[in-house]
Structure formats: structure tokens, C-alpha cells
Design a protein around this nucleic acid. Sequence first.
DNA 1: TATCTGACATCTG
DNA 2: CCAGATGCCAGAT
Length: 127
Amino acid sequence: MAAQPFDAAQFHAHVYQIVRLIPSGHVTSYGHIARLAGSPSHSRMVGSALKYLQDDSVPWQRVIGASGAISERGDGGQGARRQADRLREEGVEVTEPQGAGVGVGGQFKVSLSTYGWFPESVQLEDE
DNA sequence: TATCTGACATCTG
DNA sequence: CCAGATGCCAGAT
């Protein structure tokens, strides 16, 4: 297999497949998904793709940053808040931001050492 | 066609 | 451990 010239459609499809494979109660990072999709340097494209689709059938909430921090979309943290709450329902322990109310200098974080899901490879329908 | 932005990653202080 | 600055590459305007 050789380096692909980056096919957006194919990369897109692979991302969705991988995200669906994430088991409940576990999380993974954008960078790892990008790597499994065949492009380790296109971590940003992963998030961009998920945002653009807005598909509830894809558990995008299980995808967080490499540091275990939930990225905010600039909507005041409402999106991150919803994501954190949903992860808690699956049994994932999420730390709350500093301040707990008026605090704006903190982020929701998950222990990747405990809930991280990083398979070496996945079964993709197309390659 | 050129420029800016972005659901990131990684290094340094 | 946390915060800031830099690098990366493709999409959107």
C-alpha cells in the first residue's frame, strides 16, 4: 500500500467506519483515527468531517483530543458540555472545568490511560 | 487564484 | 500540570 493523494470521500468514509467501531465507555483521539484512516497528519480533517455531517448515527462524542480534552466549538461550551454528559452516561469519568459555573479557563478532560481505545488497525470496507 | 480559518498535534516555558 | 506558541494540511470564502 502506498501513500494516497488524499481522497476526501474515502477518508471521510473511513472516519465514519472507525468512529462507529469505538466501543461504549471508551474514547479515542482525532489523530489516531486519522492514522487508521491512512493519513496521520490529517487529524483536523477528522473533526471537520464529523462537524459537517451532523449524523446522530455516528458516536462522534467518543472522539476527543489527543490530550484527553474535549474540544469546544466556540459555542460557549454547550457542545462540549453535552458531549461530556453523554460520555458520563456510558460510564466514562469526565473532569469538570475549573470554576464550575462562571469559570471559562478550563476544559472537560477524560483519562485516556483508563478509557482510551487505540487499536493498531481496523477492518475497513475499502482500502 | 489567493488568503484565512479550523471539533488537532506537539514542543517549550 | 497548565498555558502559550508553532507546525501541519485541506476546506471554505
